[in-house]
Write a protein that binds this DNA or RNA. Structure first.
Lengths: 246, 246
DNA sequence: ATAAAACAGTTGTCAGACAAAAGATTTCAT
DNA sequence: ATGAAATCTTTTGTCTGACAACTGTTTTAT
């Protein structure tokens, strides 16, 4: 590791924050590439001229952000860009029912826009991939023991693929963040089964309309169809009285 | 401070993460109210049965999230809910020009949806507030030394007020997050002046159309008008070759 | 009574040590 | 020679104790 990799700080505010900022800039500028190993904490503390505890706090922040990952006995590594998410939902946001519904409402808007973008930006390759997930949803009938989970997974994959086809990474990241948060709060199997039980032919039809709009390259129709699905989904969820505040 | 405020942990994975989680749950459940002071780090380390360094890392994470705030020589305090934001954009997202444009694209979609919601949800009170910001933009002519900043501030306030009128706190938080991030990356005065110089009568007209749609309660028109403005704004920004990669 | 000085409590930082985990190396039985 | 087991080395994770910097309070001097 070269000597002057990091800018020497002159202790302005909070040391760990400055260190974290310096390291993340070293990553941003490409001096530290994904997969590469960071200097050891001892080395970093020497380079920055601070105690190891300070370096540890800084590294802890970056780990929290998913920018780096550390393994005891091995070292800390720069995460792959795919693994780090641009958006994080704060731990302060609790799993209250009303907030969950608002979050779904937000997702509705974002997902609809992603569909609109994807309608014009999607490649043929994207389209076949999206079609595959649609087929997966259709095929997931009541055979397996956890067909409910299969359906929901395929549905998530379907809309994630659409976001990816939009060509805007932020849509992908954002949808991913919401999805993670929602599925964390909805991790109860009972709830998932309840949601899946609502799954009728008409829901599959909602997805199919979205797909057709993407196929046709019709942005406006894709937007409407997507919004239609998520609004109905939110309504179905809201109507279920058995999903209480967690 | 009562004895059993926090659940005693049984050291499963990463100690600081568990501590942070435990504390944030104590806040979530209302055991620690906003403005209240946390136990001292020494006390916490005793209660959890870990070293102070571990507690410090945990507190550091929560500070990073804006959930708590600490002052040397005084203590750590639970932040007011208003001060903590639901969404955070990761430090891994750098100020590259292309990413900035993608972020604006995402904002377009979100803001358009917020307008659509606000068109039906806004109260008369909301409307007059939004009108005030519109007037502020119109009044900010070339008198003051920083009329450019005034215009941009008023514009931000205008669309923030619309998001607030939607009744969905997540839209507010999300717009706020993007706004913070964008303005951080665009903090150069030169850039702001450049953007403001593009400010013609037609831009004000774009905002006015949005307002009229909100006034009329026309969700679809509000959506279109908002999207129209942000798409044009992104285009204006993209066309400026003098805004280089930072 | 007021201003300065000492005090106590808390966070921020430092230094050194040991524990735990993973990889690299050596040893040893076959 | 070979494969497995034991040992060593490196690095992160945690612990301990100490001091520095800051703040609010109390005491003291004028």
């Amino acid at each position: 590791m070269t000597a002057g990799l990091f800018e020497r700080i002159d202790r302005p505010r909070r040391l760990p924050d400055e260190i974290a900022r310096s390291i993340s800039e070293a990553i941003a500028s490409g001096q530290l590439k994904p997969g590469e190993r960071l200097p050891t904490e001892q080395s970093l503390s020497a380079q920055f001229g601070v105690a190891r505890t300070v370096v540890r706090e800084a590294v802890s922040l970056l780990k929290y952000d998913g920018i780096i990952d550390s393994k005891r006995g091995v070292g800390a590594f720069v995460s792959e860009p795919a693994a780090r998410s641009a958006f994080r939902i704060s731990a302060a946001c609790f799993e209250k029912r009303r907030q969950l519904i608002q979050l779904l409402e937000l997702r509705t808007g974002v997902q609809a826009e992603a569909s609109a973008l994807a309608a014009v930006a999607r490649s043929q390759r994207d389209l076949t991939r999206i079609a595959r997930y649609l087929a997966e949803m259709a095929d997931a009938t009541e055979e397996g023991p956890d067909y409910a989970a299969q359906r929901l997974d395929a549905e998530d994959a379907f809309y994630r693929a659409i976001a990816e086809s939009s060509g805007n990474t932020y849509y992908v990241e954002f949808v991913g963040m919401i999805e993670r948060n929602v599925s964390e709060n909805l991790r109860s199997v009972a709830i998932k089964n309840a949601m899946a039980s609502e799954w009728g032919r008409e829901v599959l039809e909602e997805h199919r309309v979205v797909y057709q709009a993407l196929d046709a390259g019709d942005a406006e129709r894709a937007r409407l169809a997507t919004r239609n699905h998520f609004e109905r989904a939110a309504q179905r969820l809201a109507n279920r009285a058995d999903i209480a505040d967690v």
